[in-house]
Nucleic acid binder design. Structure first.
Lengths: 248, 248
DNA sequence: CGTCAGGTTGAGTTATATCAAATTAAGTGG
DNA sequence: CCACTTAATTTGATATAACTCAACCTGACG
């Protein structure tokens, strides 16, 4: 029975799992206190669309836990994912009143929301928020440009390998301790969502997943549980520059 | 004889053609004065690559006049354009020491450069710069996401029509007075550059240009001079939502 | 055990890429 | 001003990666 769950969790910001990565990362104690006053939590169920493109948006938010997607849809139904939101990622645009994309929860999701008006006022009075938001936006822009290379120039196999590498890398960065050896994770996306991410059809995604499995690049246990025996091999298949793309 | 031209133009910021759109747009007189002290102009010739991916970057800059591109290249030579920089657009990333993309002048180009270190210091002391940069970066992110839809889901014909619409729109916005009726402009890109923008081959670009011409969607005078007799028709061909995509 | 969403696999089609040749445009130096 | 060169572009013929349509699995859940 999917319906909007308004369950009001309430953390102290000090204990917050995304305290040091989210838009509030640079805030001092007093700044955090002001943010506390305008924040509230919302939870959504997997599959739920929280925001439709064109909707009025009266809040901005950080993903606390779970995964959400940004997608664009053409009139005839063609869909392209344009953002994959993980814990600590920011949703919404200060200074804009309507949503530009559909936002959908792909897993159960907890968001830390800020009423937009007061948030915008805080941005003026609290430079640390704007500074952090700029940094995050620049990171997203870099990610978007990497994604553009993928969409425009990579083969289906390279696209799949790239996506798996992105998820593996991110998954590793969320763990406390970097696991050595084989990487193991659960795909947070269906084949169709992967296709929407990659600009492919779900059939092509399925075929290429099978091919990568057949060739030993990945191991599959069920449809979602993935093991990467050799990350370098995967990165080679992804067509990325051999180095990890380390910047600065 | 293409070589770096260090010709030192020197404008007053007050007269600058991009004064009200660039990263300095929100600056007050005193803030502008501090910017003046760390700025210098550089000019480049059409075709010249100003920055190679991985290069050390000791400055950031605004495009004053001309057009530049950001591109990514894979080891085997596949190229994808990931940014098209017009007058007032910003180049470089505060807080990062090396360039992430190749930057190439597609026309003769004038840049207003700021030494990076002092610019970063100014960003801390002068919130108006950071605020404006955030706004510009959010705009670029939106443009990148629109571009992702194009790369992932549009047909070759739609891609070409979309690019022509983008250039036409932008060209119109740079003119003082909006021309009614037919839009006319010169393509600032070669067929190959268009292909790199759109994730196509140059042959496909050429064929689709011919097709749009044959179908009366565009008129061509020479290879570069384009007339759009009916913008709505072009937008229809581009597969975009009928409304102009007006956001806030 | 039946149902249903998610996923896989197969056969045939098609849009775009690739390879190749011809055409146009813009110099450039005699 | 005229050959000659060269880069950009167009056009043609063919190949192929990915799409489409369709059937068939698989596993979770009532």
């Amino acid at each position: 029975m999917p319906m909007q769950d308004m369950h009001l969790v309430h953390h102290e910001c000090g204990d917050c799992p995304i305290r040091h990565r989210a838009v509030c990362a640079r805030c001092e104690a007093d700044e955090l206190q002001r943010l506390e006053q305008i924040k509230y939590y919302r939870t959504y169920q997997a599959g739920q669309t929280l925001i439709w493109s064109g909707d009025r948006m009266d809040f901005v938010a950080s993903v606390v836990s779970g995964i959400a997607t940004l997608t664009q849809t053409m009139e005839d139904g063609r869909r392209q994912m344009v953002g994959l939101l993980l814990p600590s990622d920011f949703v919404g645009r200060p200074g804009r009143s309507t949503a530009a994309y559909d936002v959908t929860a792909t897993t159960d999701l907890v968001m830390c929301c800020f009423r937009k008006k007061p948030f915008e006022e805080l941005m003026v009075s609290t430079p640390h928020i704007g500074q952090r938001l700029l940094e995050m936006t620049l990171d997203e822009l870099d990610a978007a440009r990497e994604w553009m290379l993928l969409l425009g120039r990579k083969t289906a196999r390279e696209k799949i390998a790239s996506l798996l590498a992105i998820i593996a890398r991110r998954d590793a960065s969320l763990r406390v301790k970097a696991a050595k050896g084989a990487l193991v994770f659960d795909l947070p996306l269906t084949r169709e969502e992967m296709a929407d991410y990659l600009g492919l059809t779900l059939e092509t995604v399925s075929r290429q997943m099978s091919a990568l499995k057949r060739d030993g690049v990945i191991l599959l246990d069920g449809k979602r549980h993935v093991t990467i025996p050799d990350l370098d091999r995967l990165l080679e298949e992804a067509g990325d520059d051999s180095d990890g793309g380390v910047l600065d």
